[in-house]
Amino acid sequence: MRTYKETFAQLNHPALIPFFVIGDPDFDTSLEIVKAAIDGGADILELGIAFSDPIADGPTIQKADIRALNAGITVEKAKDFIAKVKAYKDIPIGLLMYYNLIFQYGAEKFFADFAKAGTNSVLIADLSIDDVDEIYTPARKAGLDTVFMVTPNTETERAKKIAEKCTGFIYTVSLLGVTGGRDTLSDMIKPLISKLKSITDVPVCVGFGVSKPEHAVELAKAGADGVIIGSRIVKIIEDNLNNKVLIAKEVTKFIKEFKTALS
């Protein structure tokens, strides 16, 4: 199974990491969309399992969660989804989700089952480094990499502690706020990338508000090892719900624009 390490080592540009909610707008369409993102040149996938109360997400991803839940997504089905993506292409997959779903499944079993399905890492939006002990050992035991978030208001000492616990990459939040498309990049992100680069060798991937190819180029120049595009790409689904066939095409096109800009 392809690792983050191999992926980052082989790329000569920042990794292109689109985010999708699994099963949005329905299981089959969602699978086609993710395949289209792979075809467009995604280097890593960030996938979410829908939760009823996503407190770290803005309106676009909230709506995607609701679409996926209404279409019947479950944790079990999400596991099958990952296996199907892996069967299409061996691409690293990071999960991004909320803690209660893992807690109810049982952390140890969750990590083991999802590692087996082809997951590389699980980032829990509402579990901070302070509670790392609840998940670190079972995740590592299952063979998963670990990923935690650093935000612009994280103090340096704390950022060091977080970096020490990240074996995959550091999910670097570009701004203070929830997920969502933004016209311009926050001015907090460049200093944050520099700070992280000065304290760790773990790859720094930037998400939240990354919406345009220009943003990705700016982040590449600032030293980012990966760019995560979430809400802006999920919005393509929202905007084309009446024409599901078009979504996959639009997603491929959108990813290619980023790829071209970064290459």
Partner: peptide, 22 residues
């Protein structure tokens, strides 16, 4: 944080990183 905010197994502070400083 100074304290874990636990009452037995309950409580804690399961929040996104951005809220920890606040």
């Amino acid at each position: 944080m100074k304290n874990s905010g636990r009452f037995g197994q309950f409580g804690g502070f399961y929040v996104p990183e951005v809220l920890i400083p606040a």
